[in-house]
């Protein structure tokens, strides 16, 4: 199908975009890469009166590092994350994740800001920013605010953004030398939305986790920072302890059932990813094999 008629405004600056949003309220939609908005409009799931195209705003695109903080502009495209030496060095989790996001032609246009604002619970990047403890920088007519990633996602396609606000950047602490990462997902086909996935950041010292952030996706209505990780921090991880953590994780999840998987299958796959992740990060392959299920 084709999109219903709408008006089009090309924003000339962030300030101009905010003025347009203030003038049109929730009748307006921001257009970034269009890789989620256009499908929704072509399928007539939504029919905004006006699109505010921010695609040309160079000030929102790019990756910088300043005072230990990695700043990624909202219009930074998936392909930019894939190619950026700063991302490879300071946030390799994003690089690993983005290879699983859609297909090359879509990664050439889709943006990180669009992905986070769209907030599909099966999306990779929202779970990554949760695992990386990122701040989402948002600007509105009344100024700028910073929202912690765990507070930003509110439900399926729902975020803390109000209709007159623009997501402008994502800020993350740069990965210290001690940080390690894990990313894996189950998908029917490479590039498809995940059936279940896990993005994790850890600090390991003397064979123990001193920090572990597990960002699961496609397991509920938003990316989930698993509380079960707490059981594995500052503890000597045994097979039994890992089984306990897996049970706690399965209890904590509230997965949807859809044509891809039942809730029970999603719970099971999440625990498999947990075991793989812990085994990989602690470099103890027996932990993955040693648990029966």
């Amino acid at each position: 199908m084709k999109a219903a008629a709408f008006a089009y405004a090309r924003a000339t600056s962030v300030v101009n975009a905010l003025e347009l949003l203030a003038a049109h309220g929730d009748k307006a939609k921001i257009l970034s890469g269009g890789q989620s908005l256009m499908p929704a409009m072509n399928l007539r799931l939504i029919s905004p009166d006006i699109l505010v195209d921010i695609g040309g705003l160079a000030e929102l695109r790019g990756i910088t590092v300043s005072a230990g903080v990695l700043i990624v502009g909202a219009l930074t495209r998936h392909v930019d994350l894939l190619k950026s030496p700063e991302i490879a060095l300071h946030a390799p989790l994003l690089r690993n994740a983005v290879t699983h996001v859609a297909h090359p032609a879509i990664r050439n246009r889709g943006t990180i800001g669009g992905s986070l604002a769209h907030a599909d619970p099966a999306s990779e990047l929202p779970a990554c920013v949760v695992a990386l403890d990122a701040m989402i920088v948002v600007r509105g007519s009344s100024g700028e605010r910073r929202i912690g990633a765990t507070e930003f996602f509110k439900g399926i396609y729902e975020t803390a953004l109000s209709p007159d606000e623009l997501l402008v950047a994502i800020e993350m602490p740069v990965a210290g030398k001690s940080s390690t990462f894990f990313f894996q997902e189950y998908a029917r086909r490479h590039g498809d939305y995940a059936v279940v996935g896990l993005a994790a950041r850890a600090v390991v010292a003397a064979g123990r986790f001193t920090d572990l952030r597990l960002g699961f996706f496609a397991v509920g209505d938003r990316p989930l920072l698993a509380a079960a990780a707490g059981r594995l921090i500052n503890a000597s991880v045994t097979s039994a302890l890992l089984s306990e953590a897996a049970t706690a994780l399965a209890d904590e999840l509230d997965p949807q059932e859809d044509q891809q998987a039942t809730a029970a299958m999603r719970r099971h796959l999440a625990t498999v990813l947990l075991r793989r992740c812990v085994a990989a990060l602690l470099a103890r392959p027996e932990l993955e094999a040693g648990v029966t299920k």
Binding site: Y8, R10, P39
Partner: peptide, 29 residues
């Protein structure tokens, strides 16, 4: 498909491949 999943509409914009069904003609300015 007109929603990005089939790839039949792939073209190159400034040397890089994109889905032409997910881009507005006005965006090609």
């Amino acid at each position: 498909c007109e929603h990005g999943v089939c790839g039949a509409c792939t073209v190159r914009i400034d040397g890089e491949i994109v889905r032409s069904c997910l881009m507005l003609a006005v965006q090609a300015e």
